[in-house]
Amino acid sequence: MTTIQILGTGCPKCKKLAENAESAAKELGIEYQLVKVTDINQIMSFGIMMTPGLAVNGEVKSVGKVPSVSDIKKLLQ
C-alpha cells in the first residue's frame, strides 16, 4: 500500500495536485491511499516552506508546484 500525502491547506493548487496524484496512482494501477494533510502544524512537521507538497510514504517528493500526472507517475514508481 502506497500512502500519498497532499500537503496543503486546501487552495486550488492543492486540489489540483490531489487530482493529478489520484490519476497517476490509478493509471499505474497501484494500491494506494490518498491523505490530505491540511493542518498547518502537521504540514510544517514535514519541514516544507511552501505548499502544495506531495509526499509518498512520508518522503517529500515535490514542493511549491503541481507536477503533471506523468511526473507524479515517475515519483510513485
Partner: peptide
C-alpha cells in the same frame, strides 16, 4: 536539514 537530506527541507530549498 539539507545536510541530513530531510526530504521536505531539500525539496523546499530546490523550489525557493
Amino acid at each position: 536539514g539539507v545536510g541530513g537530506r530531510v526530504s521536505g527541507i531539500v525539496k523546499s530549498t530546490e523550489a525557493a
